[in-house]
Amino acid sequence: MDRNQLMKWIKAPTKMAHKYSLNAVYFCTGCGVIEVPPTITSRWDAERFGVVPTATARQANLFLITGYVSVKTLRAIIRTYEQMPEPKYTVGFGSCTINGGMYWDSYNTINQLDKYIPIDGYIAGCMPRPEAIFVAVTHLWTLIDKDMADGYKRYRKNYAAYRANQEMILGEMEWPPIFQTEVATAITEREG
């Protein structure tokens, strides 16, 4: 942890601030959320690394998707993800978000989450222990340092493909596309 290194703060204050102020959305999709209360309370105390849960998507920059995702939940996940201000990071928690896990042949759970929203990293396991969340957070720090946690940029860049995939499962969605594709391309070109 390089939180106390002043030179790094002077060199890249934004990056450091995003690293050490990861505010996660309170969003519970499946059984994985049972690992979050011990993570944020006295036993493991995620707050010492600046990881705290926030109540609304607008205040957050970390989206922890904890467990299997049903079709109905996917709709809410996309809405929440699109409401979060950029830069934002997503972490899939548990094997269900990777390939469906034990629900791989279920009639109502989507199997691979990264077909619908961009994922910056996965925590494998069923269930992962709270320690795994910390491993993920430290790994996310490394990714932010190397500019590799770029899910939100990929979302903007490939928005047309993501939206097409979302509509394949959800049918007609009740909100318009958040990026016009040309606009998304322009922003991507400007900001890289």
Binding site: G100, I110, N111, Q112, D114, K115, Y116, P118, R154, N158, A161, Y162, N165, M168, I169
Partner: peptide
């Protein structure tokens, strides 16, 4: 249904 959705070509 679910496997028919293509992965995103990044």
């Amino acid at each position: 249904v679910f496997d028919r959705v293509p992965p995103i070509d990044e």
